[in-house]
Simulated scan of single mutants.
Amino acid sequence: MSDTAPLANLSEDCAFLSNGAASEWYFNGRLAAGSSASAGGTDLPNLRGAAGGIVARGIDKDRQEDAREITFGPNSALTLSGEGKGAFLITYNIAVAPAGSVTAVSGTGPSADITEGLTIAAEKGWREMVLTEACLASPGGSLTIASEAPLQISISQIMRQELPEGTQCSF
C-alpha cells in the first residue's frame, strides 16, 4: 500500500537570510557609493593612500588589486563609514600577530579589544571577522580600528548584515 496524498507546501523562508540584506562598504577593490575611509581626519579615497599613520595600498587576492593591505603606524586609527545595519563582516588576512593593543569602536559606543582574536587569526590565511553587539555595544554607522603598535592587515571585503540575535563575535 502506498500513500499518494500530496505533500504540504514547505516554507522557503530562511531566518538567517530574512534578517536583512547585506550592505557592502568595500568589495572588489572599491569603496561602495556612500561609504568612506579616513585616517587622522584625512580622506583615503577608495581606501588608498597615506594619512594619519595609515598606509593603504592595493594588493591581489582573487583579482588584480581587489584587496587592500593596510599598515598602521604606532597609535594610528582607520575609520570607515557607510550605510547599513547589523554586524560588521570583514574578510581579512593578518600575517603577524599584533605587537600591541588593537581596538574596534562603532559609532559612539565603547571600544572593544580585538587583539586576542587577531593574535589567534595570525598566520591562518584569509578569514572572516564578525563584529556583533556581543563585542561592539551598539554598532553604528562607522567603524574605527585603532592600533597602539605597528600592524599590517589585509582586507578584501567589509559589509554590514543583520544576523540572528545572540550571534557572537568571531575572528
Rank of each mutant, 00 (worst) to 15 (best):
T103K: 14
N9L: 11
P110F: 11
M1S: 10
I90C: 06
L163E: 03
F72Y: 15
I114M: 07
K124P: 14
A37E: 09
F171M: 07
E133W: 02
L10C: 03
A99P: 00
A134W: 03
A8K: 02
A22P: 13
L10I: 06
L17G: 12
A56V: 08
C135F: 12
G84I: 01
S81K: 14
A149W: 06
T108P: 01
F88L: 10
L131C: 13
I155G: 06
A51R: 05
A5H: 02
L151D: 02
I54G: 05
Q152H: 02
V105A: 10
L80T: 05
T103F: 10
A37P: 11
G40T: 05
Q168T: 13
E148G: 09
D13P: 00
V96T: 15
G53P: 02
K124A: 15
A50V: 04
K124I: 07
T42D: 03
N19W: 03
N19V: 09
I114A: 10
T42Q: 13
A39D: 06
G84T: 07
A33H: 04
S156Y: 05
P45M: 00
G40W: 00
S138P: 05
N9G: 05
P150N: 14
L163D: 05
M129L: 14
G58Q: 06
D66N: 13
E165W: 00
D62Y: 12
A97W: 05
S81R: 12
A99G: 09
L163H: 04
A121F: 05
E128V: 15
A5V: 04
S154G: 09
G166L: 04
